[in-house]
């Protein structure tokens, strides 16, 4: 049971109030029709499954109903940060910066 800081309510809330909504930072291609099947398949189906830090999209469903991002360690389940849509994470995996 996570304890999650909602960046909009600006306090910690119980995990039961939230839903995970998949990996963060996967923007919809601006021109889907111009995507090759491979590009579109990449957007639609392929996700990372890192050991360590992972950026996830969550929604405060039973609360303010806002979507936001979480940087979470998939090994320890530690939440390093939560941040609003449109902002960048402070914590990243080494290969993300490469």
């Amino acid at each position: 049971m996570f304890y999650i800081y909602c960046p909009y309510c600006e306090e910690h809330r119980e995990e039961e109030e939230f839903h995970a909504a998949g990996e963060a930072h996967i923007p919809r291609p601006l021109d889907p029709d111009a995507c090759t099947d491979e590009e579109w398949g990449e957007y639609l189906f392929f996700r990372t499954n890192p050991r360590g830090l992972h950026h996830e999209l969550w929604v405060h469903g039973v609360g303010c109903r806002k979507y936001f991002n979480i940087t979470r360690d998939t090994q320890t389940y530690e939440i390093k940060e939560t941040y609003k849509i449109g902002t960048k994470p402070q914590f990243t995996r080494a290969e993300e910066n490469a």
């Binding site: 919809r28 929604v59 469903g61 979507y67 849509i85």
Partner: peptide, 13 residues
């Protein structure tokens, strides 16, 4: 409703 919100909040704010 979540579907509308996720697109509004993350793609087309």
């Amino acid at each position: 409703l979540s579907w509308l919100e996720i697109y509004h909040q993350t793609e087309w704010p």
